[in-house]
C-alpha cells in the first residue's frame, strides 16, 4: 500500500479544526496553550456553537487567544476576564461565554473576580491553564509555583517563609456553591488530551443546560519559563506538578 493510497480525503482521521485560524501561534514550541486552543476550537466546532460563542482572553501569554479561534472575542484587563464574561453572559443569556486564563491572571491578580463569578454561579465556562509560572513577562513566580521551584523572582527556589505556598485555587473554587463542574486535567499525552477535550465539551454542555459555572483546569508546561525542552517539561510536570495538583474531577453536580 502506497502512501498515496492512504492520504485520501476518505481516510482522514484528524485535521486542524475549521475554527482555528491560519495565524501562526506565537507560543513557544511545545506550549500547552496551543493544545488547549485546539481542543476549544474542536469542541465549539463539534457542538456547532461557533455563532453563539464569545470568548474572553486574559493578560498573559494567551492574551492573543483571539487571533487563533474564529469566534467573537473580548480581550480583558489582567485578571478581569470573569467580570467581562459575567456581563456578556447576563446580557446574552443564550450565548456560550468562556474565559481563558493563566495562573497569574486567575489565581493572583484576578482572584476576587474568579471567586465571585464562581460564587454567583455565572453560566460560563472558565478554562484555567496552570503552568506554575508567569510566561509572558519572563518566568516569574506565580501563586501556583511549587515550593523549591526556581523562577526569575524565586532564584533560590520558592520558599514558603518568603513566598507562601502553592495555591490550589481549583479546590477552593470547588467549595463555592455556584460551581457545577470543577475538574483538573492535563494535555501531555494523547489520552490526557482526549480527557481534556471531553471535560471541555461537558463544560460547554453545562452552559447549554444553564447549570452554572464550569471550571476546567489544565495543568500545563511552560518549557521556556522552566528552561527545559518540551519533552523534559512534560516529564517534570508529571513528576512534580501532578503531586501537588492531582488530576481528575473535583466536583460534578
Amino acid at each position: 500500500m502506497e502512501l498515496n493510497d492512504i492520504i485520501k480525503e476518505e481516510n482522514l482521521v484528524l485535521k486542524k479544526s475549521r475554527l482555528l485560524t491560519d495565524n501562526v501561534m506565537h507560543y513557544c514550541p511545545g506550549c500547552t496553550h496551543g493544545v488547549v486552543h485546539k481542543l476549544i476550537a474542536e469542541v465549539i466546532e463539534e457542538l456547532g456553537i461557533q455563532e453563539e460563542t464569545i470568548g474572553v482572553s486574559p493578560v498573559g501569554c494567551s492574551v492573543f487567544a483571539y487571533n487563533y479561534i474564529d469566534i467573537d472575542w473580548a480581550e480583558a484587563a489582567h485578571g478581569r476576564a470573569p467580570a467581562l464574561a459575567t456581563a456578556i453572559s447576563r446580557l446574552h443569556p443564550e450565548k456560550y461565554v468562556f474565559t481563558y486564563q493563566g495562573d497569574g491572571d486567575l489565581a493572583s491578580i484576578g482572584c476576587a473576580e474568579i471567586m465571585h463569578a464562581c460564587n454567583r454561579g455565572e453560566n460560563i465556562v472558565v478554562v484555567f491553564i496552570n503552568n506554575a509560572i508567569y510566561g509572558m513577562t519572563g518566568g516569574q513566580m506565580a501563586p501556583t509555583t511549587l515550593l523549591g521551584q526556581v523562577t526569575s523572582t524565586t532564584p533560590y527556589g520558592r520558599d514558603a517563609k518568603l513566598n507562601g505556598f502553592p495555591m490550589k485555587i481549583t479546590e477552593l473554587l470547588a467549595q463555592l456553591d455556584g460551581t457545577c463542574y470543577v475538574t483538573r486535567q492535563s494535555a501531555d499525552t494523547p489520552a490526557a488530551v482526549r480527557k481534556t477535550k471531553n471535560a471541555l465539551k461537558k463544560a460547554f454542555q453545562n452552559t447549554r443546560l444553564k447549570k452554572g459555572l464550569s471550571f476546567v483546569e489544565v495543568v500545563g508546561t511552560c518549557n521556556s519559563g522552566w528552561k527545559m525542552s518540551p519533552v523534559d517539561a512534560n516529564k517534570w510536570m508529571r513528576d512534580n506538578m501532578f503531586k501537588k495538583y492531582p488530576l481528575g474531577d473535583i466536583k460534578d453536580v
Binding site: A77, L84, I88, A112
Partner: peptide
C-alpha cells in the same frame, strides 16, 4: 469597583 467597571467593559463590548 474593579469588577463593576470590567462588567461594564464586557457589556459595552456587546
Amino acid at each position: 469597583e474593579l469588577a463593576a467597571i470590567n462588567m461594564v467593559y464586557g457589556g459595552a463590548s456587546c
